[in-house]
Amino acid sequence: MTPPLTLDFVAEKMNEFGTADLVRSNRIRIHTTPEKVSNAIKYALDTLGCDRLVTISTVDNGRTFELLYHLIGPHRTVISIAVEVPRETPDIISMSGILPPAGIYERQIHDLFGITFRGHPGLSKIILNEDWPPDEFPLRKDWKKNPDTYYGGIRKEGV
């Protein structure tokens, strides 16, 4: 283990990608834009000594979809790179080329939120069953179960 990263150090290094803030004693969040996210992650891997993707968290805040890429390294400081994706055109570049574990998380997010990841090698269903309607994304805040839609499982009698 190496000494933890400080906010000043990270803020200075990641200055070109956006602002940094200290969310917790061991977690620093950097707000960036969907265009810069790929470079920001590459830069964090090369310069901040991060070596592993912990997870990609997703939040639907009603206005946009927030994606947070949590990276960690020998310094044991979580670097969260946060981007907001517009609801109307939910698409962003896939990170699976640089970070292989992103592939499975992106497939999950694609199933549940309907965010498209450009350049993903196989963005097929993984979490939802094969009968789930392709245009419904259950973790979006405005999703409501439609009583007339078939979501899989046993069909109602007479249908």
């Binding site: 549940l112 196989g122 993984i126 069953n129």
Partner: peptide
């Protein structure tokens, strides 16, 4: 190897 994990999804997060 291709994976399908959908058989026990229960929508707990929602």
């Amino acid at each position: 190897l291709e994976l399908d994990l959908s058989y026990s999804h229960r929508g707990i997060e929602k």
